[in-house]
């Protein structure tokens, strides 16, 4: 799963800590999602996308096999 969270954070001048705080998760989880080590659940993906005012598919991209 690829994400645009890092780019979106940079655009909005947000730290991982600030984003984590806004969506109710930990900084480590945001780091893991950004690096692709962890795939966010649907509710968390929805919260992150909503925070940036986007749709889930604009933030998270499923890699085709």
């Amino acid at each position: 799963m690829e994400t645009k969270i890092k780019e979106l954070r940079k655009q909005h001048k947000l730290s991982q800590e600030e984003l984590a705080d806004a969506v109710g998760t930990t900084r480590q989880t945001i780091t893991s999602i950004e690096t692709g080590k962890y795939v966010a659940s649907l509710p968390l993906a929805y919260k992150i996308a909503k925070y940036f005012g986007l749709k889930i598919e604009d933030v998270f991209m499923l890699e085709e096999e």
């Binding site: 989880t29 893991s32 962890y38």
Partner: peptide
């Protein structure tokens, strides 16, 4: 609360 309910930590 966040630490305890964090989905990655729960996993």
């Amino acid at each position: 609360y966040i630490e305890e309910h964090d989905e990655r930590q729960q996993a």
